[in-house]
Computed example of a mutant assay.
Amino acid sequence: MEAVSAKVILYDQSNIGTLEWPDTEYGQYACKYILPLLEHRAEHFIRNVRTRIEVVTVDGIPIPITINEQEYENTYVCSPYTHYVSYAREELSLLNNRLLEKGLTALLSGIGFLLRGAHFNRVVQVNNWLLSTNLYPDVSAEQLIAILDFLRQRFPGYALLFRSLNRETSGAAVTALSSYGCKLVPSRQIYLLQQPSPSKAKWLLKRDRALLDKQGYQIVGPGEIGAEDISRIVDLYELLYIHKYSKHNPMFTEAFIKLALDTGTLTLYGLRKDGRLDAAMGFFCRAGLMTAPLFGYDTTLPQSTGLYRMLSAVLIGLAEQNGHILHESSGVGQFKRNRGAVAAIEVSAVYDRYLPLRTRFSWSVLEKVLNRIGIPIIQKLKL
């Protein structure tokens, strides 16, 4: 595909002061989110992130990029190695098949050795907000191609990566990037909830919402969550996403929650009982999509309390009110299917054509292994 004539400019700490942030809802959001990351460094807000952050504008629209060299212990939102090897190795236990787990562990070890030798983490990620799901602003496929054409000249020797793409919500971008020469490397199975929900799903959601009164919880939203709740929100998120799931998930700090609370970079909601916050989430909306990268609850309370069910019902209700498609990320597949969500395969578009042979070979091997082995297993087991 030929490069297009969109105007692309790169900003870093040396010239970020000259960037004129658009006077739009997205432009002001980007300003409030990105400037603190440049001022304080990313690890001030997400303690297991090591990356360099810069900003590209395409026709004046600002989009964050992250630049990495190695950082193999990084959270997966900046480290492809962590995503495809370290995190994947942890999730093999979900298969409940010891023989299959043993075989895939050996396969991942071999792939990991190959990837490290190929400088796999030398990568520039476009539209990377350091979150589990990076929703894209309202830019055209042609503008994404213009960014890609610009960055391949500016960052020779780096793979260029667009994460959080799928055919269902970003089909035009996927097609354009593939036509340009990007590999489409599967990353995970996600769940998308569109309205209206099937009758069975509506019944389940009604039952989930009824738990709020039964368990005595009050829904609290913006204006009802304050600075005194910040440390508790961090704890609730870590109980679920770090301690129960994986240390490779982003580890949000109190500074990140304070930024969300002060500027609205995430809209915070929670469940409170007897003055105590026992569940919390933070979501944002973009171009008709909504997702909640911050989600947690007190896992020390009995599962019968139903905190996950109640908090999920609140999130789904808010998506219905906004008229947005809810991007529910990955995991807990059966639960999400039962409540009307539909599975989709998320991919990363990777441009590596000008890189050394062993790096291109590594991405090709990964692409083939995931398409032929990884994705079929995930789909069969409905993970």
Rank of each mutant, 00 (worst) to 15 (best):
M1L: 13
S5W: 03
A6E: 13
Q13R: 15
I16C: 08
G17Y: 03
E20A: 15
E20C: 06
W21E: 12
Y29P: 01
H44V: 08
N48S: 10
T51C: 10
E54D: 05
E54W: 03
V58R: 12
P62A: 11
Y72D: 08
P80H: 04
P80T: 01
T82W: 00
H83T: 06
S86C: 05
S86K: 12
Y87P: 05
E90Y: 10
E90R: 06
L100A: 15
L115G: 00
A118L: 07
H119E: 14
N121E: 07
N127H: 07
W129Y: 13
W129C: 08
D138Q: 13
A146G: 12
A146N: 06
I147F: 06
L148K: 09
R154C: 02
F162E: 01
V174F: 04
V174G: 09
C182I: 09
R188G: 10
L192C: 04
P196S: 05
S197I: 15
A201W: 03
R209Y: 04
L211E: 01
D213C: 01
V220F: 01
G226Q: 06
I230E: 02
Y245R: 10
Y245E: 12
K247D: 14
T267I: 09
Y269T: 06
R272F: 04
K273W: 00
D274K: 14
D278E: 13
G282T: 06
F283D: 07
P302W: 02
R309M: 09
F335E: 03
F335P: 03
A341Q: 04
V342L: 13
V342R: 13
A344G: 02
I345A: 03
I345L: 12
E346W: 05
A349S: 04
V350G: 06
D352V: 14
R358W: 11
R358S: 14
F361E: 13
W363A: 08
G374P: 03
L381M: 15
K382G: 01
K382A: 12
L383F: 11
